[in-house]
Design a protein around this nucleic acid. Sequence first.
DNA 1: ACTATAGGTAGGTTTAATCCTACATATCAA
DNA 2: TTGATATGTAGGATTAAACCTACCTATAGT
Lengths: 116, 116
Amino acid sequence: MPPRPSVVAESIEDRVFAALSSPVRREVLRLLRDGGPQPAGVLAAHFAMARPSFSEHLRVLRDAGLVSERKEGRQRLYRLEPVPLAEVQEWLTPYERFWRERMAALGDVLDRMEDA
Amino acid sequence: MPPRPSVVAESIEDRVFAALSSPVRREVLRLLRDGGPQPAGVLAAHFAMARPSFSEHLRVLRDAGLVSERKEGRQRLYRLEPVPLAEVQEWLTPYERFWRERMAALGDVLDRMEDA
DNA sequence: ACTATAGGTAGGTTTAATCCTACATATCAA
DNA sequence: TTGATATGTAGGATTAAACCTACCTATAGT
């Protein structure tokens, strides 16, 4: 028994990155960031896709902790949750030093090319 | 003709996030960050997996632009590439303001709870 | 030239991600 | 209560991701 991908299986970090790998789900996050909490139907209206398919996207985002859901009458208000994205940024931090050094090195090379 | 996930298909951003969703591939990036450029075999030795399977992981990282490869004798030196991760951080930027506000709001609530 | 080493490609298996159509659930409105 | 609205769940189809065992390619050493 060899295979084993899964957005639903492994660590929460796996789930967050896997959730972010879909342009549909990234667009949902953007809509929530720019427009504040919104019901599922308003979000769904932006996508040419059957509602159940969109529901699955929302579920993936929920399972990753990227959004939360609140019942509001017969709608469900979705809200962007800040913690997972903040954790992604923390994950990036040790790489930031690395790429600043590399970018700086590149800058030096370019400077020397200009001199010559 | 409905389905269509794919790490190989869509935009470069999709590929980067999909590549990051595997703990194996994140560990490879960490090894390259902390240990500098290394041949495929040295990287592979950290994982209990057949070499061809690991080769595929390297290919996914290459296709995402997260690593580059250079022939060095009969080895292939892999190197961490800074640009895609820097782009992830740029992608995160507009969310950063959002979560700082939310965190601050949470802090205010906690402060008021302490007062009471 | 021959062998060993380093690494990838080919092809197959299993699981799961994404999409769909139908159906179920819950709330509001007459 | 009956009907309409809002949204999710069930089940099925298709594709691809992750793994494996074999095999191929390229370089180094004897």
